[in-house]
């Protein structure tokens, strides 16, 4: 069982690492971009995608926690939210 203290610590960790990690990568990308614009842009893109992926990965984190807790109702809700996010991004990619 995962108590709510543990759960909050894990979720906060995912958010913090995602935020600081992507911030660091985007900074590094801007720095690289001063010398080589193409390489810089690729690094900035990775940083921004990591930033966008952070909230999505916290949905996955909570889904796993709810599953471990056998909290069926909230596991189903988390799964549905994840499905909406994934489907809409696939639509976005396909429409381009």
């Amino acid at each position: 069982m995962i108590d709510s203290n543990q759960r909050d610590r894990i979720v906060a960790g995912v958010l913090r690492w995602g935020a600081y990690g992507s911030f660091g990568i985007v900074c590094a990308g801007l720095l690289v971009g001063v010398f080589n614009q193409n390489a810089g842009n690729s690094v900035v893109r990775i940083g921004l995608l990591l930033l966008i992926a952070t909230p999505v990965s916290r949905i996955v984190t909570l889904l796993v926690i709810f599953l471990l807790d056998r909290d069926k109702k909230y596991a189903l809700i988390s799964f549905t939210v994840l499905l909406i996010v994934v489907l809409s991004s696939l639509y976005g990619m396909a429409s381009h």
Partner: peptide, 8 residues
């Protein structure tokens, strides 16, 4: 993030 992915 949901709408950002569509714009991206």
């Amino acid at each position: 993030a949901t709408s950002a992915l569509v714009y991206y």
